[in-house]
Simulated assay, not measured.
Amino acid sequence: MPYSYRITKYTETNEECFLASPPEEWTSFHEIDTPEKEKDYVEIENRYLNSIRIITDCMNITNYKISELESHDSADFFEGQEINTSDIENIARQILREKIWCKLISPNGEFHFGYDYYMYFLSNKCAPACISALSKNLTIQEYLSPYA
Rank of each mutant, 00 (worst) to 15 (best):
1 M>C: 06
2 P>N: 13
3 Y>Q: 05
3 Y>R: 00
3 Y>E: 04
4 S>I: 11
6 R>Y: 06
7 I>H: 07
8 T>A: 06
8 T>V: 06
12 E>S: 15
12 E>R: 15
12 E>Q: 15
13 T>K: 15
14 N>T: 05
15 E>N: 14
19 L>A: 03
20 A>I: 03
20 A>H: 09
20 A>D: 14
21 S>Y: 03
22 P>Q: 15
22 P>D: 13
24 E>K: 11
24 E>C: 05
25 E>D: 12
27 T>F: 02
27 T>R: 11
28 S>W: 06
28 S>Q: 07
28 S>H: 11
29 F>D: 02
29 F>H: 07
29 F>M: 03
30 H>S: 09
30 H>C: 01
31 E>F: 03
32 I>D: 00
35 P>R: 10
35 P>C: 02
36 E>H: 07
36 E>W: 09
37 K>R: 12
39 K>D: 06
40 D>P: 00
43 E>T: 11
43 E>A: 08
45 E>M: 11
46 N>L: 02
49 L>P: 08
49 L>A: 05
50 N>P: 04
51 S>R: 08
51 S>G: 03
52 I>Q: 06
53 R>K: 13
54 I>D: 06
54 I>G: 03
55 I>P: 08
58 C>V: 08
58 C>K: 12
58 C>N: 14
58 C>A: 13
61 I>C: 07
63 N>Q: 14
63 N>L: 04
63 N>R: 10
63 N>K: 12
66 I>K: 00
67 S>R: 08
68 E>N: 15
69 L>N: 03
69 L>G: 07
69 L>T: 08
70 E>L: 09
71 S>E: 01
72 H>C: 10
73 D>V: 11
73 D>H: 11
74 S>W: 01
75 A>T: 09
75 A>S: 13
76 D>N: 12
77 F>N: 02
77 F>K: 01
79 E>S: 08
79 E>I: 02
80 G>C: 04
80 G>T: 02
81 Q>S: 06
82 E>R: 07
83 I>E: 01
85 T>I: 14
87 D>A: 12
87 D>C: 09
87 D>S: 13
88 I>M: 08
90 N>I: 13
91 I>A: 01
91 I>D: 00
92 A>C: 13
93 R>M: 08
95 I>P: 09
95 I>Q: 07
97 R>G: 09
99 K>M: 10
100 I>H: 07
103 K>E: 10
103 K>C: 11
103 K>V: 02
104 L>H: 05
105 I>V: 15
105 I>D: 01
105 I>H: 00
107 P>L: 01
107 P>F: 00
108 N>L: 10
108 N>R: 09
110 E>I: 11
111 F>Y: 07
111 F>G: 05
112 H>T: 10
112 H>P: 01
115 Y>P: 04
116 D>F: 05
117 Y>K: 10
117 Y>N: 12
119 M>D: 02
119 M>Y: 07
120 Y>K: 03
122 L>T: 14
124 N>D: 13
124 N>S: 12
126 C>V: 11
126 C>G: 07
127 A>F: 06
128 P>S: 03
130 C>T: 01
130 C>S: 13
132 S>N: 15
132 S>Y: 12
133 A>R: 15
133 A>L: 13
134 L>I: 06
135 S>T: 14
135 S>R: 09
135 S>F: 00
136 K>H: 13
136 K>A: 12
138 L>K: 06
138 L>W: 06
139 T>A: 04
140 I>K: 01
144 L>F: 12
145 S>E: 01
148 A>H: 10
148 A>Q: 13
